[in-house]
């Protein structure tokens, strides 16, 4: 149980983790795997932010129907994040614009940031992990 003891000892340390989601949901496994990592990180009581930029925005679309392509529709899992105390979700304004989308097209409440705001947020982090 030495691992557990170490975790106990380190339990006071909270780092700022940013997970950067940059890929469309179904063409590759990045989005789904990234989400799993986020859920696991949440179990360690860290300060987690999720950022959706570029094609990563497509992960958050309302009304996705994956029956025809026979993959799991994990877009609904983003709505469970609140229960995991992950409430900092950010979206890049320029990425929305380039895809003809607005906040209303997304399945969860997000904060839309400009490039400058996003850059500042990223600079504040201890760890940035990109999927």
């Amino acid at each position: 149980m030495s691992d557990m003891d170490e975790m106990e000892d380190g339990s006071g340390i909270v780092k700022k983790f940013m997970f950067l989601n940059r890929k469309a949901p179904h063409g590759t496994v990045y989005a789904l795997e990234g989400l799993e990592v986020v859920l696991i990180t949440a179990a360690f009581d860290q300060d987690v932010s999720m950022v959706f930029t570029d094609d990563g925005i497509y992960q958050l679309m309302k009304g996705i129907d994956t029956k025809g392509i026979e993959v799991k529709d994990f877009s609904r899992t983003y709505r469970a994040l609140e229960g995991y105390d992950i409430e900092k979700l950010y979206v890049d304004q320029a990425s929305l614009d380039a895809r003809g989308l607005t906040e209303d097209d997304l399945i969860v409440d997000v904060t839309v940031l400009s490039v400058d705001e996003m850059a500042n947020l990223m600079a504040e982090q201890d760890v940035v992990i990109s999927f």
Partner: peptide, 8 residues
């Protein structure tokens, strides 16, 4: 079609 359907 099925790929389009996955896109709302």
């Amino acid at each position: 079609g099925p790929d389009l359907a996955a896109w709302p």
